[in-house]
């Protein structure tokens, strides 16, 4: 069983990446991915991209789980969380770089209340903290931000990249932090976390279309890792942790 917890739909406003619904379905079928979490790209057209994800996942409830992007700085951010929950979306994506999330910690923390009330996990869309916003702000705001969120909102599931600053410390401290492998290049980091911190909270996420799901799956299947751990990473963890969203 393969579950991909990180596939983007649509186009990125700043980078030349795009992925259409039929692209996602074709790759899922070809590489036997039984379920994908569908995330919009970060956007300032919040309602438009969230509606697109909702419409897509509604057509394929047996295969897809939809997430919404939320801009914590938006005046209607809290209302948008309630709206997307009503649309049938099952999680919230925050993009620290695009929306400057960790410069708005108080607003982000307020957002966690409707996320908790609706059982929505919160996924941070980052690949490498050392570039982009992380390089401008330094890595501490990322560590401090997640440290605060995970402590104050223990019922909310937080999903982050294996490159998150001091992720080992955070995972050991908080059981509500989970790892999204982030494609082939994140797999080695994810595998290390599975070995060093534990295999039960690390999940495969392709970060497609930037990364290709086939490479991430192959990396998990061929890197040095117990076969039973491989199955956890490829899908069993995601089913156990996020099965209530399916």
């Amino acid at each position: 069983m393969i579950i991909d917890i990180h596939a983007h739909l649509g186009h990125h406003p700043l980078q030349d990446f795009k992925q259409e619904p039929e692209d996602i379905l074709a790759v899922m079928e070809k590489y036997e991915i039984s379920r994908s979490f569908i995330l919009p790209f970060p956007s300032m057209k919040i309602k438009t991209v969230n509606d697109s994800v909702a419409a897509f996942v509604k057509k394929h409830p047996g295969k897809l789980t939809g997430f919404a992007v939320i801009d914590p700085a938006a005046d209607d951010a809290l209302e948008e969380v309630e709206r997307i929950a009503g649309l049938g979306l099952k999680g919230v994506m925050l993009d620290p770089e695009f929306h400057g999330v960790f410069r708005r910690q108080a607003k982000v923390e307020a957002l966690m209340v409707p996320c908790m009330d609706n059982g929505l996990p919160v996924l941070f869309n980052t690949l490498n903290i050392e570039v982009g916003e992380g390089s401008r702000m330094g890595r501490e705001p990322y560590y401090n931000g997640l440290n605060s969120l995970a402590f104050k909102f223990p019922e909310v599931r937080f999903v982050v990249s294996p490159f998150w600053p001091r992720i080992r410390d955070l995972m050991r401290q908080y059981q509500n932090i989970f790892i999204d492998s982030g494609g082939r290049n994140g797999i080695s980091g994810a595998v290390r976390l599975a070995v060093e911190v534990g295999p039960t909270r690390v999940c495969f996420g392709s970060e497609s279309p930037q990364n290709h799901p086939a490479l991430g799956v192959k990396a998990i299947r061929t890197m040095k890792l117990s076969p039973v751990y491989r199955e956890l990473l490829l899908g069993k963890n995601a089913k156990r942790i996020f099965g209530d969203l399916f």
């Binding site: 980078q15 570039v131 930037q210």
Partner: peptide
């Protein structure tokens, strides 16, 4: 480098 899409592009 592969860890940063901007530098790839």
């Amino acid at each position: 480098g592969g860890t940063c899409f901007d530098s790839e592009l």
